[in-house]
Design a protein around this nucleic acid. Structure first.
Lengths: 256, 256
DNA sequence: CGAACGATTGAGTAAAGTCAATACCTGTGG
DNA sequence: CCACAGGTATTGACTTTACTCAATCGTTCG
C-alpha cells in the first residue's frame, strides 16, 4: 500500500523494519473528504491526529475583513495537527483543496509511538522542524520576493516536496488550486495572480494544463525564482556533499 | 535568579517543583554576546542548544541580492535551535539585536530531559508549537495586512510576549531595533518603515522613546492592528473562557 | 441552452519602492 | 567644550508594483 508518511520519513531518517511496520499500521481507515471542505476549523480542539494520505489541503487564517491567507500547503504524508492537543485550540483552520483521503489517528497511538520508539520520535521531530523551515521560507518569499518570483518559488517547493513522495512523473504534477487559492497563498490579489501566472507561462518556465503543472526545466525555474532548497532538508544529514543543488534522483518518479 | 525559560513554560504548563529545579540547572554559564553579532550562521551544524537569557535576537534569511528578511524575534526564554541537530544544517542565521546573554546547553542534557521528564517534554513541545503559530501569524500579516497595521501587530505581539516573561512595566518595554531592522521584519523598505512608524506615533498608538516603546492603550492598538492573540496560546488550555481578549494580569509586571 | 464558476483583460488608483538630500544623535579626538 | 565621523532617522519627488473595479471570455454541467 502507498504510505506517503513512511516514504517521506524514510527518505530523511534511517528507520528499522519494525518502525516501518508501525508506520504502516498507523494508516488504518481512510476517510474521504470532498474538495473545499474544512477538516479542522479555527478554535477546534481536535481529539485525534489527522494525516493527509491523498489529495491536497491547506492551512489558512481568516482576517476580520474576510480575506484569507493560506499559510501552508499540505500534501500526502503531512500531519494536520500533530501534537496540537498540547496547545488546546487550533489557531488556524485546515481545508481540503482537492478531494482527499484523511486518516484519523488516536492521540494515544502517537503518544505510544513517541514514548517507545526513538527513531520514529526522531522522524516526527524532523517533519515538524521541516514544516517550521517551510514557514520561514514563506515569510522570506512574502517579505522580499516580487510576486512572479514568489509564485515560481512555490512551484519549486511543490515540485520537490511532491517528488520526494513520488508524485512527480514526466516533470509534471497535480496541482488542484484555483488562481484564487494561489493568490491566497502568495498574499496577492487574484487579478495579479492571473497576470503573474501568465508571465511564468509566457517565459516558458511553467506550463499549466488544467489541474496539472509541468516544469520542463527545474533548474531554470530555480534560477528565476532565486530558490534555495536547503530549507526542505531532503538530503540525509550525514552526507554533507549534496544539498547545495537540486537533487535529481535517478530512481523511478512514480509512486505506487 | 531570573529564569525566563521557566517563567515562559510555567505560565503555560503545570510543572512540578522538580521540573522547575531541572529547568534552573539548565541555566549554567551565561556567555555575553555583543549587539549585531551572529550567534549561529546559515549552514552551521550547532553541537549545543542555544538559549537566549537576556537581550533580543532574531532569526533571519539572506537573499541572493543581499536583502534580509527577519523571520522571528527571539526574546529571553527562547531557544535558538532546539533539536535542530536533527536537521543537520541551519537553514537560516541567528543574530543578536542587542547585547545578549546566551546559555549553551549540551545536546545530551536536552535529550536526557525529554527522555525522562514528560512534563518538560510537553512544555518544550508547547514552546515549539507556539513558535510555529507565530510563524503562521507573520505569514498572515505579511500577506494580508498593510504595513502600518502589520507593524502595529508586531508591537502587540512583542508587548504580550514580553509581558508574559515579566519584561513590561508601566506599559513600556525595551525594543532595541533600528528602523532598518523593523523594515527587515515587516518586509518593507526602510523609508516606508519610517513613515508607517511615524503614522503610529501620530495616531497616539505607540510612543517610541529612544530604545523603549510605550503602549498606552493596548486595546486600541489591538483594534487598529486587527490583532488576535490566540496564536500566542498564553492562557492555560483547560480554561476555555479566557483567550478571546487581551489578558490583563493583575500581578506585578516586573521580573527580578 | 444558460447558470455558475473560474480565467482573462483593460483602465484607473493606491501602496510601497527608489533615489537623494538633509537632519539628528552619539561618541571621539583635539 | 567643540568639530567631526558614522550611523540612524526624516523628508521630498518620482517610479514601480500591486490593487480595485468592471467587463468579457471559456468551460463545465444540469
Amino acid at each position: 500500500m502507498y504510505n506517503p508518511l513512511l516514504r517521506k520519513l524514510s527518505r530523511a531518517i534511517d528507520l528499522t523494519a519494525e518502525d516501518e511496520k508501525l508506520l504502516n499500521e498507523v494508516i488504518g481507515v481512510q476517510r474521504g473528504v470532498e474538495a473545499r471542505q474544512d477538516i479542522i476549523q479555527e478554535g477546534d480542539r481536535p481529539e485525534e491526529v489527522h494525516l493527509i494520505v491523498q489529495g491536497f489541503a491547506c492551512r489558512y487564517k481568516l482576517l476580520p475583513n474576510g480575506e484569507r491567507q493560506i499559510v501552508a500547503i499540505l500534501i500526502p504524508g503531512d500531519f494536520c495537527d500533530l501534537h496540537v492537543a498540547i496547545l488546546g485550540e487550533m489557531d488556524h483552520g485546515i481545508a481540503t483543496l482537492s478531494r482527499c483521503k484523511v486518516v484519523h489517528i488516536p492521540r494515544k497511538t502517537i503518544d505510544e509511538l513517541t514514548r517507545n520508539h526513538p527513531r520514529i520520535t526522531h522522524a516526527l521531530w524532523w517533519a515538524t522542524l521541516v514544516d517550521e523551515g517551510i514557514l520561514r521560507e514563506w515569510i522570506t518569499n512574502l517579505g522580499r520576493k516580487p510576486a512572479e518570483r514568489h509564485i515560481a518559488s512555490l512551484m519549486c517547493e511543490l515540485y520537490l516536496r511532491l517528488k520526494s513522495i513520488g508524485l512527480v512523473s514526466d516533470h509534471t504534477f497535480e496541482l488542484p488550486m484555483t488562481q484564487q487559492e494561489v493568490a491566497d497563498a502568495v498574499g496577492i490579489s487574484i487579478v495579479h495572480a492571473n497576470r503573474m501566472l501568465a508571465e511564468l507561462r509566457e517565459r516558458g518556465l511553467v506550463a499549466f494544463q488544467g489541474r496539472r503543472v509541468r516544469i520542463t526545466d527545474i533548474d531554470e525555474l530555480v534560477a528565476f525564482a532565486g530558490f534555495n532548497q536547503n530549507y526542505l532538508h531532503l538530503t540525509r544529514r550525514n552526507n554533507p556533499e549534496n544539498g547545495q543543488r537540486i537533487v535529481h534522483d535517478q530512481g523511478r518518479e512514480q509512486g505506487t
